[in-house]
Design a protein around this nucleic acid. Structure first.
Lengths: 176, 176, 176, 176
DNA sequence: ACCTTCGGGACTGCCCGTTACT
DNA sequence: AGTAACGGGCAGTCCCGAAGGT
């Protein structure tokens, strides 16, 4: 595996095991088995390292979404339904502590949002191609983002039953 | 005005004018016209200062919500509608750069979310008291949080027209 | 009990239970049940508080010495023997963690040594009054200080048997 | 000379010239001609810097002891005599203000005593190898530590004449 | 006399990023 | 494709002084 990948792995492991606050260049270097200078060779700054983590997370998220898409029957809102399924997936983005960390980083530094925006636009394009009711789709997708966001900051408002009802309601809006 | 309030004002001004990254205790002290020791007398840590900012922001947000509530006609989803109106208000939480900063802080430090959770539960109780369709309400409110969150991290996905349609769709779900 | 005494008690308890590093004015105030300002009313500075602790410790030490003196048979080196007994007493100054803390404070701030010096001179006078062999007495007493000092900094060089032999040797030098 | 050595030099100079209380990382950095970051690169903490100073002081002390040893005639207590000579040496450990500072540091932080303990055990081994009367040796050496300790905390109990008599008495105990 | 609230400023140590050198 | 060394900004701890209350 490339050193670059090893460093991202190390960074994500640190965040998962010790929390964001402990993600320092020194620690990432130590876990990845290189010097701090080595980390800064591959990533120009800490923000740059975070960008790398964001990209990887987006990739994972997209993988989950795609596999849901493939498992769903054809239909007008197939992609949108996949988005809903992903948001509620126990292994999805809402459950990864790394997500919260990156959320923080993105909130602080606006330019980190760029790769995320591009991916969102790609998803939107995909959904509009399948002839969806775009208003309902946007409402549902935005709600899914709200849900993931609630999970990421630990705002436990909904119990399992309420979550199930919300999921059903969201999918209902995407009927026919 | 109390020193404590002056410090919160200073902190919010810094975030608005220079961005979160420039919010340091030293800077807050300078702007508020006290020493760092003075700041740390009123706020035990930077996180504590942020907690103060969160509380104030929640208060402002609630004020907006309440004034919308009062301006709306009576009806089953009066509070829920007020939530939607607030989310789209150009002076609402979505537009304040301070919100992004606090979002970041909350994402990093889970315990900062406590006052926010309490306020949310109060709002939920309020909405359930008015006999709302709770599933639809949750879907809409979660979507509003998603929208605010998009704004806060600067993920400009929707133009004015799309926003207007989303607002209409959300309010439509709260009909009768 | 006077507030002043309560504060000294609190300070000593903190040192014993949490170590010197945790002895702060704030902590002492909290444990003693007053505000920091209250502490500084009774003791002009932290050093002053330490002076108070030193005095109390000297008093305790003198109490032990006196009771040994009274239990010893009359003789030329009765006081000197009491000094030796005190140095080896398991409840004596060598065993109190507070001693180490105060040692540190005294080493840093030379003027804290004043009460200690006065007490030493009193002891020396006492010993010379009993017609002692002053050279042997000084050698033995200095050795006792060395021993106490070793204990205070945790320089565990001697096991129980070696300590017993050292004690015997010291007392032997004070024969007749 | 290495930066590390320069920093230790600077730290010792500060203690000697301005007292322990003025030994701060900033000051050490300034005197050594590096930044505080530079100091903290070589010494992880102030304690770590002090550890470095302790090691150097132990080395100096051992040098003095060794040169006394070489100047002394052969005999059963050659090393022990060297210890006595060192304790009374006007350039020895008792006279260096740095010693007091380190004493304080060691009293506060028990783990700093480790190198000192090792060195003491080495010395003890050396003395027992020369076939010494170990009880007398321990008594004398402990007394020497007591004396050095008195000097370090500035407990001026003995005038020059009394010191000379103490020295003679100590050496007398090491006869034949 | 006794105690509190408020605030100032020195200091430690953590951490990011730069430079010089392989 | 790295590493060692270094610089400097910041957070948080702590001592203490000033001013005032009871």
């Amino acid at each position: 595996m490339s050193t670059r990948e090893k460093i991202i792995d190390a960074a994500m492991a640190i965040v998962r095991e010790q929390g964001v606050a402990r993600l320092t260049l020194d620690e990432a270097a130590k876990v990845a088995g290189v010097s701090k200078g080595g980390v800064l060779y591959h990533f120009a700054s800490k923000d740059d390292l975070i960008r790398g983590m964001v990209s990887r997370l987006i990739g994972q998220c997209e993988g989950i979404q795609k596999s849901y898409y493939e498992s769903l029957p054809e239909g007008r809102h197939r992609w949108a339904r996949a988005v809903v399924m992903t948001a509620f997936d126990p292994n999805g983005p809402a459950s990864d502590p790394v997500g919260g960390a990156l959320l923080a980083a993105v909130a602080v530094n606006r330019e980190l949002v760029q790769p995320l925006r591009e991916k969102y636009q790609e998803w939107l394009a995909r959904m509009s191609e399948e002839g969806a009711d775009l208003d309902a789709t946007m409402l549902v997708c935005t709600a899914m983002d709200g849900l993931v966001f609630h999970d990421l900051i630990g705002l436990n408002l909904l119990n399992e039953e309420a979550r199930a009802r919300l999921k059903a309601r969201a999918l209902a809006l995407l009927e026919n």
